[in-house]
């Protein structure tokens, strides 16, 4: 069961094709990491899902209901946190949330208790001054409060962590992770470590198309190759080592050899011990001794690089 589906969605700005025949499915209950470099079309995709911009072609459905440009009823199901949430600086956080709540039809004590609970949840319960004096982190937290105010089925966050400091980022990711099971989250970012921390599904957007979309575990299994990383005292030594290991590529467990400065990375397949044996034997035969020799599991960065290449 999926809460959000995009089928054959295209969008251009002038001669620039931002999205080309984009297909995207977000499973209900998932935290979906929507990954892509800057300018890949992540924000455009989100604006289309919210009916804030018009797609050139294709269909978008939220919870089985078609999204229309302009006033779309599907927005009842969604909460949206823009990349830079804009508020009215002359209001207080409580006033702002009250206004948002009223727009969604909340009234009376239900509204008051929801607003208080939300402010408490995002840590703004004691912020009584106007939003104009809020820090970036406080604005982001108010942004998530307004997005969650209606307890949406689908929460859409556009690069929510890119402007936050490390502590703010951790707090924000913890908050998102705490929503697991309550709401589906579509979370765009170019910070891959954030995705690895909280997402269970990943889609990589590149050149206007979704290049891959799978669960994080499947993706790692499918794409990533574990590797051995060696560092040498000098770049000359590293180059020598790389030249020596190159002929082993594509057989004898060794898959790919790459070198940069004093480092050599060797992607391998199969058992680590066998691959390490091959590498060390080759190096020691010419008395080339690395400073460090370590095994690394695959990470999303490698997968991303591989997909977008």
């Amino acid at each position: 069961m999926s809460i959000l589906t995009l089928q054959h969605v295209s969008k251009s700005f002038g001669s620039k094709h931002v999205l080309r025949d984009l297909n995207l499915t977000v499973p209900t209950g998932s935290i979906y990491g929507f990954v892509g470099e800057n300018g890949a079309g992540k924000t455009t995709t989100m604006k289309l899902i919210l009916g804030l911009d018009r797609a050139d072609s294709g269909d978008i459905e939220v919870a089985g209901e078609q999204v229309r440009f302009g006033e779309t009823a599907t927005n009842r199901q969604t909460g949206y946190l823009p990349d830079v949430p804009a508020f009215y600086g002359y209001m207080t956080a409580t006033e702002y949330l009250r206004m948002c709540g009223q727009l969604t039809g909340l009234r009376g004590t239900a509204l008051a208790s929801r607003v208080t609970a939300m402010l408490k949840r995002v840590g703004l319960a004691s912020a009584s001054h106007r939003i104009g004096g809020f820090s970036r982190g406080m604005r982001q937290r108010l942004g998530i409060a307004q997005a969650l105010l209606t307890m949406p089925k689908l929460l859409i966050c556009d690069e929510p962590t890119s402007a936050l400091d490390p502590q703010g980022r951790t707090e924000f990711l913890d908050l998102l992770a705490s929503l697991r099971g309550q709401t589906t989250i579509l979370f765009s970012t170019h910070i891959l470590s954030d995705v690895e921390r909280i997402c269970d599904h990943v889609g990589i957007l590149h050149q206007g198309r979704l290049q891959v979309s799978a669960s994080l575990a499947d993706l790692k299994q499918q794409y990533a190759k574990p590797q051995v990383r060696l560092t040498f005292e000098t770049a000359v030594q590293a180059k020598q080592a790389a030249t020596l290991l190159m002929p082993l590529q594509h057989h004898n467990h060794v898959q790919q050899v790459t070198q940069s400065a004093g480092e050599v990375a060797v992607a391998y397949a199969g058992i680590y011990a066998a691959a390490a044996d091959r590498i060390l034997t080759a190096l020691l035969a010419v008395r080339l001794v690395p400073l460090t020799f370590s095994q690394e599991e695959a990470n999303l960065d490698q997968i991303f690089m591989e997909v977008v290449q």
Binding site: L52, E71, T150
Partner: peptide, 15 residues
């Protein structure tokens, strides 16, 4: 320009 309408329109404010 400032995007202040985005939050309200996505909450159901008719344009």
């Amino acid at each position: 320009q400032q995007g202040t309408l985005v939050n309200l329109v996505t909450k159901g404010l008719p344009r």
